[in-house]
Simulated scan of single mutants.
Amino acid sequence: MYRRIIGVLSAAVIAVGGFAPAASAAPGPRAACPDPGPGLLHCFTAYTPVRALADGPVGWGADDLASAYRLPAEPGPDTLVGISIAYDAPNLEADLAAYRAQYGLPPCTTANGCFRKVNQQGLPAPLPAANFGWGMESTLDVSMVSAACPSCRIVVVESNTPGFADLAETADTAVRLGASVVSNSYGARESGAPLAFASHYQHPGVTVVASSGDAGFTAANYPAVLPTTVAVGGTSLARDQSSPRGWTESAWQYGGSGCSAYIAKPSWQKDTHCGKRTVADIASAAEDIAIHYTDAGGWLPASGTSASAPYIAGLIGRSGHAGTAQPPTLYAHAAQFADITAGTNDWAGAGKKCGNDYLCVAAPGYDAPTGLGVPIGLTGF
């Protein structure tokens, strides 16, 4: 469904690690998760309360995304996609059911074997404590996987805390339970502490996907910065009837990008102004995404690279190449992605913080905010 609130998130204010609440009393964007401080990972979701306005979806829905990215009619295989997340979302299955019913997607339930929710050890109980912000992130995650791959099964692995060790265990557990794609829609500024857990995001035969962050051009985010992950940036999506595609995209102003201070330059990255690993690799829509979240009153628009990463994870699952769709493969198939050449994520400096360089400004060819570009169909995977 086309957005009924246009650009409502564009006036957002960024804080370190994500959006800050709007100062106005009018409904405005706010961070789902407050900054957790050092030693913890941050969820990348912002939302706009529209309870009084929304009697149905507000934002881009599954049908819009399918049109924008030219998804095939065939639903694809029943790939198991893992969601690594902190805390519990008690209404997750019900909210997923509302989303899928709204867009005509087949049911994905515990009863039919499509949906599973476990703790970080992989057990159905006890589940962690509930958390409003991380619960919204979980809801966004499963909705985006569903929009990208209606035939995929989903396992949500919930950690007790957003600590590095706990979330590393959720990623491992998702793989142990059979996931061939694992989405991680959280992050932290890269440093020696989180990088000690890098091995948990590298599994043979598994594609690991991570959000690039929501603080614009800044230090690279972990785990997206790891060379074993597909780092996903964000775009702003708009209809454009004058283009053959019918849609246009620009770099989302808050989507993360950065040049690593720690990770060596992978052989498959050829950009020249960053001597180490550059984030991101590819991108997809991150702004004004419709979700149904009971704890916030129902339908509302959410934003963040927390939408982009699970959407790309779902597309990889749908492609039938889960596990083989690794960063080097994507770069080898660069021509299969639609290049994004407009927009900047240097929201504070209007491009000046990085000298209007490709590290913060979308440009022809590879650029850090949108990577190789956005998928058009599944051939890039």
Rank of each mutant, 00 (worst) to 15 (best):
M1I: 08
R4I: 08
I6S: 12
G7V: 02
V8W: 13
V8A: 15
S10R: 15
V13L: 13
G18E: 06
A20S: 15
A25W: 11
G28E: 04
P36V: 00
L41P: 04
A46F: 05
L53T: 10
G59D: 04
W60A: 01
A66I: 11
R70A: 03
P75K: 15
P77G: 01
D78I: 05
V81C: 07
A89Q: 01
P90T: 00
A94I: 05
R100H: 10
A101M: 02
P106Q: 12
T110K: 10
N112D: 14
N119I: 00
P124E: 02
P126V: 00
F132Y: 07
S146I: 01
R153H: 12
E158W: 02
T161K: 14
A171C: 14
A171Q: 14
L177Y: 00
G178P: 11
Y186A: 07
Y186S: 10
A188V: 12
E190A: 01
F197N: 14
Y201V: 04
G233F: 08
S236R: 09
L237T: 13
D240E: 09
S242R: 11
G255P: 04
A261F: 06
P266N: 05
W268Q: 07
V279P: 11
I282A: 06
D288L: 11
Y311M: 07
I312A: 05
P327V: 00
G343T: 09
T344G: 09
D346E: 14
K353M: 05
K353G: 12
N356D: 09
N356Y: 08
D357C: 01
L359M: 08
A363N: 09
G373M: 02
G377L: 02
T379H: 15
T379F: 03
F381I: 02
